[in-house]
């Protein structure tokens, strides 16, 4: 469970201050499937970065599983990212010279897991995302959808609490995007907390809870019941 209280974020200093988040209160339970929507410049990416420990709030508190995060310390944030969050990006972000297995295993390198175990875990997850026959391929030998699957496997490899995806289908055609979203749905059904940042209604429609942000404030938070 994560609980954000009165989160504010201001970029810049003095007269150049740009407030981005104006006090966000948000609680996300384990196992939820959340879509964060909003127009560009609304602050949704900043919120995602804060949730994913890539950034820290200027003020406000963030509790993860009941424990308050003592923010602003690089090493602490890096450890939290490594242990609790799996990122999926719009542009996939692969290590271009490493094959699928190595790409998937890369977070484990920083977690201090032995090479044998890293490879085993990576293979297992590649099978899970449907790339059992593409394990030794380099990123440039994979299609966009396949790359995103590798990225999802990589996000899962540390067995994180939260799966954070920033426009995960933004660079994919609608057909492939649909398959990726089905994969997220499946992972959510298996118990993962999935948070997707998007500006597309169709993508948000996969989620069970849709949060809308505008000008740094939550303007809408509704649960979808099907």
């Amino acid at each position: 469970m994560m609980k954000l209280s009165n989160i504010r974020k201001v970029y810049g200093k003095g007269s150049l201050e740009v407030p981005v988040l104006h006090g966000i209160d948000l609680t996300i339970e384990d196992g939820e499937f959340v879509a964060i929507m909003g127009p560009s410049g609304s602050g949704k990416s900043t919120l995602m970065n804060i949730i994913g420990f890539l950034d820290y709030p200027s003020s406000g508190t963030y509790e993860l599983n009941g424990e308050q995060i003592a923010a602003a310390k690089e090493t602490t944030l890096a450890k939290l990212r490594n242990e609790h969050v799996g990122f999926v990006f719009q542009q996939f972000f692969m290590f271009p010279r490493d094959n699928a297995i190595k790409n998937v295993a890369s977070p484990l390198v920083y977690a201090g897991v032995s090479k044998r175990e890293r490879t085993a875990r990576a293979k297992e997850l590649l099978v899970k995302v449907g790339l059992g026959d593409r394990m030794k391929h380099l990123p440039n030998q994979l299609s966009g959808g396949q790359k995103q699957r590798v990225a999802i496997a990589r996000a899962l490899v540390n067995n994180p609490t939260i799966l954070l995806a920033d426009e995960p289908t933004g660079a994919l055609d609608s057909n492939t995007g649909e398959q990726i979203m089905k994969l997220f749905t499946q992972l959510n059904e298996e118990g993962k907390t999935v948070i997707i940042v998007t500006h597309e209604e169709e993508i948000a429609a996969y989620a069970k809870r849709i949060i809308t942000i505008k000008d740094g404030l939550i303007t809408d938070d509704r649960r979808v019941t099907t």
Binding site: A78, R81, F87, F93
Partner: peptide, 10 residues
Amino acid sequence: GLRKAIGATR
């Protein structure tokens, strides 16, 4: 950036 996102410390 990617290495940091997946947990590499400074």
